[in-house]
């Protein structure tokens, strides 16, 4: 490698780069960034998992106009969490709401804020996915003697989940990037670690460049997973 680059550039590029302070900063802190990336992934996974449960519940409530309280409650929930910035929700929850429930900690607080936010978007994805299924499917199920719940469970949801996968992957990717906002309450995820390293080294291009690349790799992998799922479902 060293010899090869020497041949091409006329000097040893690897050694040349090692002279640069920023590169050293990145290599020295790389394991810390990796831990941060893991925290980011953990936060995203938890937020999306709880968000899916919330989304399914509130999405289904949104489709039950006969159950007035649930329908309106769900509307209120979706409106609020889609209509205010996630950044503000994180601050409100951590400083304004959760202290009343004892010392919950920044990470848990961040998971709750992100889950609630994600749940609102996923509720709309679920609603749209269910409404995309032909009305005749529900009628066929009901005409066989199924009640609303059985027809939903055996007929509509198994079809709707294929429809919701692309927008759901989209939401996962957005959530992964948005977890960077929780750095404000001191959750030691990727962005906060970047901030700390930057503050002590003043190498913005190297530090933020590296952070950006790590985020990009994570979202790209998620997107590739989404493409794979879509292809698999298409052939089924």
């Amino acid at each position: 490698m060293t010899q090869l680059t020497s041949c091409i550039f006329g000097f040893n590029i690897v050694e040349k780069m090692m002279d640069i302070h920023g590169f050293e900063v990145v290599t020295n802190n790389f394991s810390s960034f990796m831990v941060g990336a893991l925290v980011t992934l953990e936060l995203t996974a938890l937020a999306v998992a709880f968000g899916m449960i919330l989304g399914l519940v509130f999405g289904l409530l949104r489709l039950a106009p006969n159950f007035k309280i649930g329908y309106h409650l769900s509307g209120l929930y979706i409106d609020f969490f889609r209509g205010t910035p996630l950044f503000v929700q994180i601050l409100l929850l951590y400083f304004g709401v959760l202290p009343f429930f004892g010392d919950i900690g920044a990470f848990t607080s961040a998971v709750i804020a992100c889950s609630l936010n994600s749940g609102a978007y996923i509720a709309e994805i679920v609603r749209a996915g269910i409404q995309a299924i032909d009305q005749g499917q529900m009628e066929a199920g009901r005409s066989l003697g199924m009640n609303q719940r059985q027809a939903m469970w055996y007929i509509i949801l198994p079809q709707a989940y294929k429809v919701v996968i692309p927008p759901l992957i989209n939401e996962f990717i957005a959530m992964l990037k948005d977890t960077s906002l929780v750095s404000i309450i001191g959750v030691s995820e990727l962005t906060l670690r970047g901030k700390l390293v930057y503050a002590s080294t003043y190498e913005p291009a190297w530090v933020w460049g590296t952070i950006a690349i790590i985020y990009f790799i994570m979202t790209k992998l998620l997107a590739m997973f989404g493409d794979y799922m879509e292809r698999r479902l298409a052939t089924e």
């Binding site: 032909d134 499917q137 066929a140 009901r142 005409s143 066989l144 003697g145 199924m146 198994p158």
Partner: peptide, 30 residues
């Protein structure tokens, strides 16, 4: 409705189930 069978103009078969599963779904579950 369990005693009143209905056949629709647009069939409304369940696309995620095989022919056989379409027929066995309601009897087994209901």
């Amino acid at each position: 409705r369990q005693q009143v069978g209905m056949v629709f103009q647009l069939f409304n078969l369940f696309p995620h189930k095989t022919t056989l599963e379409n027929i066995t779904l309601a009897p087994t579950k209901i």
